[in-house]
Simulated scan of single mutants.
Amino acid sequence: MSKDMLLWDETLFSNGEILEFDYLPDYFVHRDSQMQSLRFSLKPALRGMRPVNCLVKGPPGTGKTTAVMKVFNEMKEYTDNVVFVKVNCQMDSTRFAVVSRIYEQLVHITPPSSGVAFRRLFEKVIKYLLDANKTLVVALDDINYLFPEGHADEVMYSLLRAHEQYPGARISIIAIISDVGIPYRFDPRVGSVFLPEEIAFPRYESDEIGDIIDNRIRHAFFQDVVSSEARDKVVSYVDMTGDLRIGIDLLKRSGLNAERRARRTVSVEDVEKAYEASRLLHLCRNIKSLSDHEKTLLRLIAKDSSLQTGELYKAFHEITGLGYTRFYEIIEKMHVSRLINADFSGKGMRGRTRYVEPVPDSKDILKCLE
């Protein structure tokens, strides 16, 4: 057997768990001011007061969710009177789904997905909080996904004004927004009670990226497994995309590529090969979260981006039987999610004509839809 060949029980990873997306790192740096702002905003909860709401915003992969979860974990050590709940709005994208997730995390029972009125479920959540005399802090992660159909305002309004109908209810919201260049706006009725502390998470600088990647390499791999050239390549890809999650996924895939080739070191070639898969990772995750009808529309757009909205609707209706209102809602949702661009061209016989085109490469979209 070749001396470079890895045996079945051999691996390049000393602790591969560090490279998983849901891993909460002990080493979390370059976000001190943001962490302090979160702590200051939530501190009133320790004294039985309603915490200050927060709007956490920044590009994808800049540590927003990690910072919130680490502060949650810190506070859990100091109080039993505050319940911390995180909701992934990409997966739970309606008012009922959000409240169902909150209920599930409070009482550890999953409510039925149908047959239960929103009001009844919401009252159960409030009753639990009042009976237990607990404050609820909800992190609405990727709240972007609630905006297109008005669900963001519905969720925020219900939670933030609960104390008006149920005196004594203490609920605070941390809205986490991935800033992808699409404007967002809360209804004035929500804005008047939200009044958040805004906490910005900028892109990591190149030296900060290098520091974080070095730490992950040091703790995830055995010594001298990742070459300096491979490390620099990973850092350059993260610097180019601005998304640290891509770098962490690159490390994992690069290590697996090296193992597949039965090598004991990770090379630049392993990183480059991994990037082809990693760059599609988040696109495929976004597409996977879409409903069947949304995937149908996205497939039509990816196959022919020259269609006007009227022609596109006709093709969509023939396949799904859905009406124009639902068609328009899906268009808006995917526009906000940066899957498509649905701007008006300013051309056309009757005024402005709206063309719909994919933002990512059509081939990449169709690959994720396979």
Rank of each mutant, 00 (worst) to 15 (best):
I102W: 00
D224Y: 03
L290T: 03
R119Q: 13
F118H: 03
V190W: 00
S100P: 07
V235W: 01
V52T: 14
E154N: 11
G321W: 05
V98G: 10
R354A: 01
D26Q: 14
L312V: 00
S305L: 07
P51V: 01
H163Q: 12
V107R: 11
R261Q: 15
S33F: 09
T325I: 12
A262N: 15
G323L: 06
R161F: 00
D80T: 10
N15G: 05
A45F: 00
V235E: 09
L307M: 15
K124P: 07
E269R: 15
P360I: 02
V226W: 11
L7S: 13
S278A: 14
S192W: 04
V155A: 02
L46W: 03
E208M: 03
M5R: 15
Y204T: 08
L195T: 07
Y145P: 06
L55Y: 15
V226Q: 09
L140M: 00
A230N: 04
L12C: 07
Y23N: 13
V82F: 00
Y324L: 12
G16C: 06
R285K: 15
F316R: 01
F147T: 06
V234W: 05
A117F: 13
E318Y: 12
A220C: 01
T241N: 05
P60S: 04
I319V: 11
A258W: 10
T241L: 08
S93E: 03
T353P: 02
K295L: 04
H282K: 15
S33M: 12
R39P: 00
L46I: 05
R161I: 04
T325P: 04
C284M: 08
Y275L: 08
A132L: 11
Y275W: 14
F96Q: 14
N15V: 02
G150S: 08
P25K: 11
Q308E: 13
F84L: 00
A169P: 01
I212P: 10
S14D: 11
S114H: 13
V68M: 04
V336H: 12
P183G: 08
K57C: 10
F40E: 12
D32H: 11
D270A: 00
P358I: 11
R218W: 04
I171C: 07
L244V: 08
K57M: 12
S33P: 10
A302H: 06
V125L: 01
D214W: 04
E20K: 15
T309Q: 13
Q34L: 08
G321C: 09
L250D: 03
D80A: 01
K295H: 06
G168R: 08
C284L: 05
N341A: 11
Q36W: 10
I340W: 06
L55M: 13
E332H: 14
V98E: 02
C89E: 01
N73S: 05
E74P: 08
D92T: 10
E164T: 02
A200P: 15
E229P: 07
E10Y: 06
S306T: 14
R253Y: 13
D232P: 03
Y128F: 15
E311T: 00
R185L: 00
G346L: 05
S158G: 07
E20D: 14
F222N: 07
V238S: 01
D207Q: 13
A162D: 07
T11F: 05
T353V: 12
P25V: 00
E164V: 01
M156I: 03
Q36L: 12
I182D: 02
R260K: 15
Q223I: 03
V356T: 10
Y275Q: 06
